[in-house]
Nucleic acid binder design. Structure first.
Lengths: 168, 168
DNA sequence: TTAAACTTTCAGTAAATTTTGAAAGTTTAA
DNA sequence: TTAAACTTTCAAAATTTACTGAAAGTTTAA
């Protein structure tokens, strides 16, 4: 397989995976393109490579920067902005976990906490089932949250450190 | 808050979380409804509770059964089918992880393996970057895969068992 | 200044996904 | 059998989400 074809395939696969996990396809593709590019690229080049519009490229790049996955680079003597992606997979995973926790897990946790405190007739099986399900899910979600927190903050701790070495 | 209102809120939150993670909103809502219902429900009841059409309810229930999250129940002397959800959060998490691995992670792993073996000019920085990124991601993905496998199969092992106890 | 080079915005359009509902299919009991 | 009770299918419609492109905005160098 040619390098160009291989890159293409990678971009497609990454885009598909992203869209299946709630990250928009173009965003994942731009990220993929930057991941496999040795040099930082301009908006112009990204537009051309992925056949997307200027507006789309611009917004997507801003989003990626917002996710902490891409950074701007300025080259001396040039007006244009160049973009490049952090290539460390562990950082990528961390950043994504961090953002999604903040954007999606935290709001749900808040609601679950509220619902955990709903009071009702303990004799009512409908209430009992509701209460138990919500509490169980809340417990699981809280643990996931706590684990992510530990993982994001204290990667260097002896416990997680030794587990992360397996992954890196 | 009333029980009915609390249920409603739970269903909405679960639906939103699902859609943010690539699971269709209605499917997550039907699942939520069954999770907080003491008794198994008929298609009819689900349609009414969530204001969805018969076709939608039917397809969604079939999907949920396909995901291993919901089961049919037959009541003696009745023609109607009743549906109920497994209420064990750990099982739910396991089932979802299992299905998504099969449907989404495995295909990507296959492509990454292929792309890891693409050969090229080691002097070419473009090739080097491509190769390194793909290999790193492949490694991470494989480890995630392996971990899920261990987690799904050998939950009882001393190592994971002790970690899972924290979550349960 | 000012005009060229570049970036950002956003209303309108397009594409993808989800939902509907009526018709077709299936099962059961009499 | 057959007809009532129930389930499934799927083309078309509705909804949601993503993208375009031209215009407005910003920065820089002369």
């Amino acid at each position: 397989m040619e390098l160009a074809a291989a890159k293409q395939k990678f971009i497609e696969a990454w885009g598909k995976l992203g869209s299946e996990w709630g990250i928009n396809r173009t965003m994942a593709q731009v990220h993929a393109l930057l991941l496999v590019s040795h040099e930082a690229l301009t908006t112009e080049q990204i537009m051309k490579d992925l056949s997307i519009s200027r507006g789309n490229a611009n917004m997507t790049l801003r989003d990626l920067i917002g996710w902490g996955l891409v950074e701007k680079q300025h080259k001396a003597g040039e007006r244009k902005e160049y973009f490049y992606a952090d290539k460390d997979t562990w950082n990528i995973a961390r950043q994504v976990a961090k953002e999604r926790r903040k954007r999606e897990l935290d709001p749900v946790l808040k609601i679950l906490d509220e619902l955990s405190n709903v009071e009702g007739d303990v004799k009512d099986p409908e209430f009992k089932t509701f209460s138990k399900s919500v509490k169980d899910i809340n417990k699981l979600a809280k643990n996931v949250d706590k684990t992510l927190d530990t993982m994001l903050k204290a990667e260097e701790s002896w416990f997680w450190g030794s587990i992360f070495k397996i992954f890196k």
